[in-house]
Design a protein around this nucleic acid. Structure first.
Lengths: 101, 101
DNA sequence: ACATAATGTTTGTAATACAAACCGGTTTGC
DNA sequence: GCAAACCGGTTTGTATTACAAACATTATGT
């Protein structure tokens, strides 16, 4: 059954905001910071914060905190596990839906 | 911003079970019945029932009830709105993720 | 020195996915 | 012919979770 391929998809990706976050991070070469994500994805700070905590917990993202001058700066990068999850997501969706066009 | 394309996607599709249901219905020519969906997608009855209620409420699916012999039989078909939602979903996901491979 | 802003995090709440319990009706066993 | 098991779904209760408001901390402007 083709639709069972969806079972291989990491559950964290079945959320509009988190999918957008992961897409953004997997595109960007290098790290992306908190405020950039806020601005581009139109999320509130609280919302982004909790999403990133979950994504880190699941190992899809790595959080880096650093001082820029004396202010803190939080950036995120997509782990290889995260990239793989995105690929699985895309291929699963395509095999399940492509033939229905 | 490419990722904003995800905002056009119908929110009901951001759920693994409902996406699988819609994929199945949009593939099948004609109606699919309750028990077939249960069997192929491995959902509980309660779970499927509530998902279908939501999908009908959102206009992505139409529910038909009929008697087969003296038993009732519930079948579902994907509306044109549902098919369009699937197409939007697929193209949004592809434009957002394709370049990240 | 005091107000305002910037950067995140924690907390409270509303929405929701899920399965258990339920319900109306039918078939089976005895 | 009556009870028990079954079928086809629906409603209800619960546990999870997405979200924004409130909070905490530090920096900046005046």
């Amino acid at each position: 059954m083709a639709s069972s391929e969806l079972l291989n998809v990491h559950p964290a990706l079945f959320d509009r905001a988190r999918l957008a976050i992961m897409a953004h991070l997997s595109l960007a070469k290098g790290a992306v910071d908190f405020n950039t994500l806020i601005a581009e994805l139109e999320l509130t700070r609280g919302n982004l914060s909790t999403h990133m905590k979950k994504l880190e917990h699941d190992g899809l993202v790595r959080i880096k905190k650093a001082f820029i001058g004396r202010k803190t700066r939080t950036t995120y990068i997509c782990t290889s596990k995260g990239k793989k999850a995105i690929q699985i997501y895309l291929s699963a969706v395509e095999t399940v839906l492509r033939s229905s066009l």
